[in-house]
Nucleic acid binder design. Sequence first.
DNA 1: GATATAATCAACCAAAAGGTTGAATATATT
DNA 2: AATATATTCAACCTTTTGGTTGATTATATC
Lengths: 111, 111
Amino acid sequence: MSTPKTLDRTLLALADPTRRAILQRLSSGEARVTDVAQPFKMSLNAVSKHILVLERAKLVQRRKVGRDHFLSYRAEPLDAAAQWIEQTRHFWGSRLDALEKLLREEDANRS
Amino acid sequence: MSTPKTLDRTLLALADPTRRAILQRLSSGEARVTDVAQPFKMSLNAVSKHILVLERAKLVQRRKVGRDHFLSYRAEPLDAAAQWIEQTRHFWGSRLDALEKLLREEDANRS
DNA sequence: GATATAATCAACCAAAAGGTTGAATATATT
DNA sequence: AATATATTCAACCTTTTGGTTGATTATATC
């Protein structure tokens, strides 16, 4: 499971196309900060900040080798987020069929 | 599927405990703005803003009846987000086993 | 018609997000 | 030792976020 704050960090980190692209890049293996930044139009510093956000969310891990920082993708937070979403979908979506839900709403409106 | 911007809005909307609590409340049926706001310590206006964020993400739908605005939970964006995450997990996580991934990384480091 | 209720709008504020540039730090290379 | 490279740190800027309070709009109720 994931605490609310952890979930916040994970979802927030994923709610940005640049950061998702970075993760995608890392999903096929380790890369240095400069390499990760290369495809983007923004500055290296901007990418460095995005990486920090991903690190805070534990979606990215850093391994320093000399002046190079090797970044790698960690799947656990995504797993946790998926678990939360699936669980949520189950409880909010499928548990009630359409009729049941309708009845509940009518009941609520009556009060 | 969901466009990047749609996904951004969905994930951003979900990345806040207040908004998740609002959705949870609505998952058991329609409710008016005031009713939704009641359990929170913050002002009605603050909650109203959160609802707007959820509406922009299409996670909440509004039905006006007189002066009352009835809010309801819509599952589609969550479904789309879940789909994205599952697909992503599949391609980034499980496709390669540990050995394959290691080999790829060694190859990358060699360059 | 007067008043109460449901909700937004508007202005403001502080903090965070996302970007910039320039300086600093640490490590390699010559 | 001098220089180049990899990266962060620091300061700054603009926009967004998350909250406030006070006014406004629309609808019910007495």
